[in-house]
Amino acid sequence: MRAEPPPRPSPLSYAERPATKVPNWHGLVVLDVLFNNLSTGLYLCAAVGELLAPAAFAGVAPWAYRAALAFLVADLVCLILDLGDPLRFHHMLRVWKPSSPMSLGTWALVGYSLAVGLLATAGLLPGAAAFDAGRRVLVLAGMVPALAVALYKGVLFSTTAQPGWREARWLGAFLVNSAFHFGAALTLVLAGLLRQQDAVAGLRAAAVALGLLHLGALLLVVFDIAPFLRAVRSPARLVELGLVVVGAGILLPMLCFSLGSRGGDLLGLAAMLAGGIMARDELVHLPHRLQHAAGGAAARLRA
């Protein structure tokens, strides 16, 4: 738990200061967004695979659900620790309030936790195979909260008053597409490690094609927030960011996945994670950096 520093008196005039205050969301929120996308992406890819090609995904899906559960637990830990008062996390369950994306996300997380928790542990129970039809219904039903969990986070950021976030109309779309891309990549790696070759071919094609959609959604967000990025980053730094987020995070993985080797898949996934963390760090900290930049620019003008 990190306490916020008390607001210090500023020598800037009121007109020079941003009217808004930035919430104390930092590294834990970056990880939360990442784990959210990893978990939901993994679940959605495994679920679609299991429903469309049950034989090919029979060996992969249970492990994908377990990995999705592990990422979900990590996500929930980040969410709770980032609260000012983590012992009051259950207060989120007091109300059902669709006007608040955070409330909607909370209830979506509850539904998703139940679905992925049951699916991850169902295979461990004796006699579980007898309930195959029920399991398929649960897989399908779990897709609804999984999609809601994947998409609420972007809307949560874009429906704030924070400069940079409030202009990012496509943030929800970006995180959804990113989740699918991550999910396909993770499931592909998992299928490769488990030697489930029947699942690998389809997943490989999906992991490459979903990269294009991921890139398209990212460009839409960048188009929205470009003036703010230029305000906080030098041109050289923007090129570096582009190389990591687009080059390493999307294009390199697409190339790696198309090579068709297990080593290439692992390298592609590692590069995706690096780019994904960088992109999320940049998005989460944009209002913080804008606030610093506003102070710095005003101080320079005065000097």
Partner: peptide, 21 residues
Amino acid sequence: RAVLSVLPPLAVLITALLRGR
């Protein structure tokens, strides 16, 4: 926008997995 953006990746995933069967 977020809900509609689910459709393209879902369509791509379904197509890829059906072709890969």
